[in-house]
Nucleic acid binder design. Sequence first.
DNA 1: TAGTTTCTACAACGACCGTTGTAATCTACC
DNA 2: GGTAGATTACAACGGTCGTTGTAGAAACTA
Lengths: 231, 231
Amino acid sequence: MASTDHEDGTAATRPRRGRGDKAAAIAHAACEVFGRDGYTRASIDTIAAEAGASTRTLYNHFPGGKAELFRSVMQWSAGQVRDEQLVRLRKFLDPQRPPRPEDLERDLLALARAWVALMTDFRDHFALVRHIHGEAGHVPPEVLDAWQEAGPRRVSRELTVVMAALADHGLLDVHGNPAQATAHFMALISAEIAQRSYWGVIPLPPEETDRITAVGVQTFLRAYGAAGRPR
Amino acid sequence: MASTDHEDGTAATRPRRGRGDKAAAIAHAACEVFGRDGYTRASIDTIAAEAGASTRTLYNHFPGGKAELFRSVMQWSAGQVRDEQLVRLRKFLDPQRPPRPEDLERDLLALARAWVALMTDFRDHFALVRHIHGEAGHVPPEVLDAWQEAGPRRVSRELTVVMAALADHGLLDVHGNPAQATAHFMALISAEIAQRSYWGVIPLPPEETDRITAVGVQTFLRAYGAAGRPR
DNA sequence: TAGTTTCTACAACGACCGTTGTAATCTACC
DNA sequence: GGTAGATTACAACGGTCGTTGTAGAAACTA
């Protein structure tokens, strides 16, 4: 995410000079502070201090100032989580190799649990996302769109492919709309947890998140299970 | 919500002096400005100006300053929407008089549409809610809890009663957990709309919200329809 | 070691904001 | 008309914040 990185994430030709890449430290700290305090309340000085850098260094790396820093952090953070989300998706559900029917619920549940765990594994990111929701009216629409495209939408499309594959193999009945099944799957496994945990501020006990996730998957399968295998 | 109102909402003994109840105007404006700009970005002067009042008058009505004003607006706004939500719930689903089986989907869909319409009918409130989600870490937990109790939780409980009644009459199979069915119903009809519309900032075309709502209700019924009447 | 780049401390600037005090004006009621 | 309470305009305060400039220290390269 540093201004000297290429968009594919590989480091630029010039290797880092300063000890330990100040730009990355600033990005990390900015994610934490923006997530904790929100765009307006977060102060540049706090971010710089938390990154162990000086204010001037921050402006050297992000000449666009606070606004550009926020946009950069949005994209960077969304990419991080999206990558991890896709890793976990492919780990439990390979479109090429569908599970045996009796393993479908087990695999869906494993995926759901792994995804819900992201909320605590990437606490800063999801805090940032909540603030983005609030600030949406103050973020340029194209930035908002780029963020959704880099993060949530790409994941949705990938899961939709899996849903379609499962339907093709007769494991699910998506009623002609795998994208809809995807949206409903996500809603059923995460909406209640988000609300009950005050959007991650006060985490639920693990047993409770496990229970909600399991019931969400069961409900999803009652609605989308293959016609021949109703629960 | 004015400091001279009683908590049940009836006006205090002393009738209003000033033309048109400045306190209410301030509350209304505060809801709009807090919703648009968030707690930190919103300025007292802007709120007062938008209410057609002076800054000093605002402080006379809300001696606690900005923080108290925000808390008051949270509660007031949540109460307004909760009341309207309950009105619409009772309009379409009376626990005493369950619908005929063939009308169940029609009534659930009418309720879902009426509830989803709240997002545009009370745009300011939901904008405020988004900011509350972001600011949750900066709101005292007891205030957060009072807000949830005054608003969303009370509505959930009421819908849960209806779900239980429908199950009692054999119209639904809630699998022993009507509260869970309630949470899933809400998630299925609103989660995707919230996400796709950028949380209300860029409204979806009405046909699209209608479609999503209808599919959400159908999916809910596939998962929770009475065993004897699968779709 | 010399040179180049990065980083830091420090100060300063203009702007905005929350809050309070004061004195004048307005409005409703007797 | 007089009175009491509500409302107003206005100024002022201390504080925070985003941003920039400057000069020197530090770290890396050749």
